[in-house]
């Protein structure tokens, strides 16, 4: 086993690293802001709000991310409506398609996390807000979302890690992320153990960072309800 093939290709791994740490936060950002309204809709009792969001989360949580990425990347390019209109300037770019599928995927999971937190909100809190004369929007903004989001921190931390790991799939649609770099090194220099071991260690470090960040967040926002 020789790790010299890794050192000789450190630039490739660095490029891959940059792609991963750009793609994942961007997808999480879009996913988060899609999930906020979606989770409120999903938790509502109005069937016209509830069922469309439920179908959305059911599809994206019920199928593998890999299949979604392929469906968006190769699947949609089959149609002239995508290929010959303004849409193509978006779908032409593998990076943007990857970002789109990752964002929708994490939006679906995040929606369910937030919805769970909203539904578990103690009824008394909402009643108290009503009694104070708050309107529905104010209640949402000042009571429901702040409490629900805080309670979601631990499960959202898991989702962030899942997204980091899921992002390795973009290496299958010509994007060179950390896994993509490892695959190139493996296929060119035939050192699978060295290549994937290195990738694994990088992901492990990133995972530890995320765990650390969320520990701090929990400390800051959840210490008042800790037993």
């Amino acid at each position: 086993m020789s790790f010299s093939i890794i050192f000789d290709n450190w630039k490739l791994f660095l490029e891959g690293f940059v792609v991963t740490i750009q793609l994942v936060p961007l997808a999480l950002f879009f996913g988060f802001f899609m999930a906020l309204p979606l989770s409120v809709m999903r938790a509502s009792s109005n069937p016209f709000l509830k069922w469309p969001t439920y179908s959305f989360t059911y599809f994206f949580r019920g199928t593998p991310l890999l299949v979604q990425v392929y469906l968006f990347y190769y699947g949609l390019a089959q149609f002239s409506i995508v290929k010959e209109t303004i849409l193509w300037s978006f779908f032409k770019d593998a990076y943007k398609v990857g970002l789109l599928s990752f964002s929708l995927n994490t939006a679906a999971y995040t929606t369910e996390i937030f919805r769970g937190a909203i539904e578990r909100l103690p009824l008394g809190q909402i009643e108290a807000a009503k009694a104070c004369g708050m309107g529905p929007l104010t209640r949402l903004r000042r009571i429901i979302l702040p409490i629900a989001l805080r309670k979601s921190i631990p499960s959202y931390g898991n989702e962030v890690i899942f997204m980091l790991h899921g992002s390795s799939i973009c290496s299958l649609i010509t994007i060179i992320d950390i896994t993509g770099a490892a695959r190139i090194v493996n296929s060119r220099y035939y050192g699978p153990v060295e290549a994937f071991f290195t990738a694994g260690v990088i992901y492990l470090c990133l995972t530890f960072c995320i765990v650390g960040i969320f520990k701090q967040l929990e400390k800051k926002f959840l210490s008042h309800i800790r037993r």
């Binding site: 190769y74 390019a77 089959q78 290929k83 193509w88 032409k92 593998a94 010509t174």
Partner: peptide, 18 residues
């Protein structure tokens, strides 16, 4: 350079115009 895992995937992307 766009590198594909399978030759078929390169064909699909040529047809797609990528």
């Amino acid at each position: 350079i766009k590198r594909y895992g399978k030759q078929d995937e390169a064909y699909l992307d040529m047809k797609a115009g990528r």
